[in-house]
Write a protein that binds this DNA or RNA. Structure first.
Length: 153
DNA sequence: GCCAACGTTGGC
DNA sequence: GCCAACGTTGGC
């Protein structure tokens, strides 16, 4: 099993929005970055776990855990001319944007803030801290366990 | 294929 | 609102 970190702006879609969604699941749509798309398409597997990270907000940080429940799904917003995420270069026959379904697993006992994550040498190689703008990114098992531990402090 | 201009992300 | 760090676009 692999671990990931998914960013979302809470004003657009927060962890509590996921908890309140039907079946506590949602399609992780709207990603329009090829590096992130390649991870969604090729690397994420059903059963993998991901941190839910709140970005561009008052207190950026990890707020919860979610689980990947389905993969290889064409992003429907890319085919919808009415969507902000519509991409005329994508089609049902040759989809350009592939995504996954996620399910809320559990909220962290507290938000582990970005500010705090920067303090620990154990996390200095985290993608989050070194490649700021990637919205889907891998987390190592050590990083995963360490951050879960922080949340319990 | 290079690279300048431009757009976006996201922390602060 | 600012701006650094990228990513994308498009002329050449």
């Amino acid at each position: 099993m692999n671990y990931w970190l998914l960013k979302s702006e809470p004003d657009a879609y927060s962890y509590s929005d996921l908890e309140n969604a039907p079946n506590q699941r949602t399609l992780w749509d709207g990603v329009r970055n090829y590096q992130a798309r390649n991870l969604l398409r090729d690397e994420l597997r059903s059963g993998d776990l991901a941190f839910f990270y709140h970005s561009s907000c008052k207190e950026p940080g990890v707020v919860g855990v979610c689980r990947i429940t389905a993969t290889g799904i064409t992003d429907p917003t890319s085919l919808d001319p009415a969507s902000d995420y519509y991409d005329p270069k994508s089609s049902a026959e040759n989809p350009r944007w592939i995504t996954v379904e996620v399910e809320a697993d559990r909220p962290l006992a507290r938000t582990v803030t970005l500010k705090e994550l920067k303090n620990y040498p154990q996390l200095e190689d985290m993608v989050l801290l070194n490649r700021g703008r990637l919205s889907v990114q891998p987390v190592t098992e050590d990083e995963w366990q360490f951050i879960l531990g922080l949340a319990e402090q």
